[in-house]
């Protein structure tokens, strides 16, 4: 094993180009587990801790440019207003110690369906900026996840920045685990209201081979909200609409049975979380009409 320590982004890209099998390590919260448990012996470890630009974030007009190594602690403490869904998701990540090291880049790189950030990114709307010595490209989040623990990265590419839409309405995030802290998702659900476009976006975690959006549920809800004039009249969403939305969210799942939960439970729980997060966000929207931080 070799340990590569690039001091800059350019050096990191050059190293990755030279050694495409090199495994990037930033927070280490995935990679080191695999090494400690002898699941993985990469030829090269590519340490990204010295690459400063990965630790920067900036809130622009439309988007937040989030460096791949910005930690979950920073996101939940400093980006609650801009990225409420992701901030809530960050708060559910493992433990304080892990949140102090891990960042969204790692979640994306590992691309586990159980990664906590994915549903929030899907719901908010995001693009992943990846780069290699050949140049950079933006991958829409919906196209980023290509299979179980697989993503759209080329072997020579590294994740640089995640461009996430700034919240234009309330966002929520829920995750089921079988413990009240420090737990991997059995399944998770993210929901964002986008009043500017009068749309709702969702994200489901750990209930399909990849993180997915519940697109039919979104389309149904978008139509129902439009039809009922809900965006304007701010009325309470009717139970039947909420139920239909929840059922469609459940139907969007394609889960498996594993030690953490049954497929049946995952479908069931995603439906409950869809209904609840819709209720919470809509309540926030009705009461203020504006962007709100997550309530929890």
């Amino acid at each position: 094993m070799d340990f590569l320590r690039p001091a800059s982004w350019e050096e990191a890209l050059a190293a990755k180009a030279e050694h495409p099998t090199a495994v990037p390590i930033a927070g280490g919260t995935d990679v080191m587990v695999e090494i400690n448990f002898d699941h993985r012996r990469p030829e090269y470890l590519l340490d990204l801790n010295r690459v400063e630009l990965l630790r920067d974030w900036e809130a622009g007009e439309e988007n937040v440019r989030l460096g791949a190594s910005v930690t979950y602690t920073q996101i939940m403490e400093q980006l609650r207003a801009e990225l409420p869904g992701l901030a809530l998701a960050s708060h559910t990540v493992a433990s304080p110690q892990i949140r102090n090291r891990g960042g969204v880049g790692g979640n994306l790189g590992t691309a586990s369906p159980a990664g906590d950030a994915h549903p929030a990114l899907l719901a908010a709307g995001a693009e992943v900026e990846v780069e290699s010595v050949r140049g950079s490209r933006f991958i829409p989040i919906d196209e980023f996840y290509t299979g179980v623990k697989r993503n759209a990265l080329q072997p020579d590419e590294l994740i640089k920045t995640v461009h996430i839409k700034k919240a234009d309405g309330p966002q929520q995030y829920s995750k089921v685990g079988t413990r009240n802290a420090m737990v991997i998702a059995v399944c998770a659900f993210g929901l964002a209201l986008h009043p500017e476009t009068r749309t709702v976006r969702t994200g489901i975690g750990s209930a399909a081979p990849t993180p997915v959006r519940a697109k039919e549920a979104e389309e149904f809800l978008n139509a129902a909200l439009e039809e009922g004039g809900f965006w304007d009249n701010g009325k309470i969403i009717t139970p039947s609409i909420a139920k239909q939305f929840a059922d469609l969210a459940s139907a969007a799942c394609n889960p498996i049975d594993d030690v953490r939960g049954t497929a049946r439970y995952r479908r069931h729980a995603v439906g409950i979380m869809a209904r609840r997060t819709l209720g919470w966000t809509w309540e926030q929207y009705r009461s203020t009409g504006a962007t709100l931080e997550g309530a929890a």
Binding site: S174, G177, A181, M273, R276, A296
Partner: peptide, 14 residues
């Protein structure tokens, strides 16, 4: 305060 609720930090119920 989700810390006092079932699900805890995972924010599953209010």
């Amino acid at each position: 305060d989700v810390r006092a609720l079932p699900g805890g930090l995972s924010n599953t119920t209010h």
